[in-house]
Simulated assay, not measured.
Amino acid sequence: MARVAIVGGAGYIGGELLRLLLGHPEAEVAAVTSTRLAGRRVDGAHPNLRGLTDLTFVDPGSLEEYDALFLATPHTETMGRMTGYAKIATTIFDLSADFRLRDPEVFRRYYGLPHEAVDLLPEFVLGLPELHRDRLRAADRVAVPGCMATAGILALRPAAAAGLIEPEVTIDARTGSSGSGATAGPENLHAERSGAMRVFAPTRHRHEAEIGQETGLSVRMSATGVEAVRGVQVLCRARLAPGADERAVRAAYRAAYAAEPFVRVVAQKRGLYRLPEPKILSGSNFCDVGFAADGERALVLVAALDNLVKGGAGNAVQCMNVRYGWPERAGLTFAGLHPN
């Protein structure tokens, strides 16, 4: 049984980490931190956990030693504290953006400040088992990718790796309000968000850097907030390489994901859910991927997931399972809801 702690447990990702880890057969949640809520019960912030735990939030300064540490901490704040975190845990799963990008200059361009721990970047493995499972088995430092980045990478990687698409792609990403976090500003008040389809990143969304890094493609990405609480859907527009067709795409995706426990190929000719739909993935660790071609070299690759689970906490738990040699589905068997 591994003793784990969650840093930044009061937010939505922290709550999902708690939900998943409290039901995990191999993990014991020993501590959950929150500076603002220290001393209060965790089920006050996460009422869905009532009756499942008596844990209270503790101040981050009171952490002891643990087998694994999950960091649900703000972007750009984690890198300056990583040396301290490394002293209290053998294995660290960082859900912030601070160690996802290997090139510190790319990090500066997308996050607007220099990286404070460049020397630590080589220690981190990107936490995407579908790409880096072998390295994750021995990794003590894991950087969990962003939600839209995870969807985009899983949508594009098989086609890119097989040389089936041209190198330039555009991505239209849609996300629910929980992606803004539990302390989002006035633009996410219900009165402002309800009914809106707000293009909050018309160009250069930060996750395009992660997708480009992991696929080798030239990526241009925009992102829109839609009227949903959970869920991410990405539409990746590409051109088929000369000689490639939809049949070759289908074969590449079937081969790439045939043995993956949490990626499903969903590309049907008819039906209500013939392409990936985040609505039916709520609470699950699945990422569904699909595609459609027009017969004239235009290809749309689609992926959907729950931004808080496969796009965050669930992916981190999956990485933990790989790292410790546990069944990869441990703690992650929830199938999603329909209807929802």
Rank of each mutant, 00 (worst) to 15 (best):
A31G: 03
I171S: 09
E328A: 06
T35S: 13
A160Y: 01
V265S: 02
A255W: 00
A27I: 13
V29S: 01
T333L: 11
T76H: 06
A209K: 03
Y273E: 08
S34F: 06
A38P: 07
P129A: 04
L305C: 05
P167G: 02
Y273V: 10
A117S: 11
L332V: 07
L126Q: 14
V199Y: 05
E260Q: 14
A241K: 02
T83P: 00
P47I: 09
L20A: 07
P25F: 07
D94V: 03
V226F: 06
H115S: 04
S222G: 15
S284T: 09
R108M: 10
V266R: 12
A159E: 02
G163S: 06
I153E: 01
L113V: 15
P339A: 12
P339T: 09
I6P: 00
V142C: 01
N315F: 01
A2E: 12
E246F: 06
H46F: 05
F262L: 08
S284L: 03
A161N: 10
P278K: 07
L154H: 00
S284C: 09
H207N: 13
G44M: 13
L332C: 05
G283T: 07
V169I: 13
M82F: 11
D98R: 07
S222E: 13
A201M: 11
I92V: 14
T183F: 15
A155F: 02
D54H: 09
H24S: 03
L95H: 05
A303I: 01
A117R: 09
Q233R: 15
P276A: 04
G290I: 07
V234R: 04
A173S: 12
E65A: 14
A184Q: 09
G283I: 08
T170Y: 02
R137T: 14
P129V: 04
L22A: 02
I165C: 08
F107I: 12
I153W: 07
A143R: 08
G44K: 13
E227C: 09
D294G: 11
Y273M: 04
E260Y: 11
T90A: 14
H205P: 08
A255E: 13
L95Q: 01
I211F: 02
A241Q: 01
L22Q: 03
P145N: 10
G271L: 03
A258G: 08
H207T: 14
E210S: 08
E65M: 11
S282D: 15
V29T: 04
A196R: 15
L37T: 05
H115N: 07
P276W: 02
L131A: 04
G51P: 03
R323P: 07
R81S: 07
G314Y: 00
E64W: 10
L189V: 06
P47Y: 11
A259Q: 13
A258S: 14
H190I: 14
A5W: 09
H338A: 14
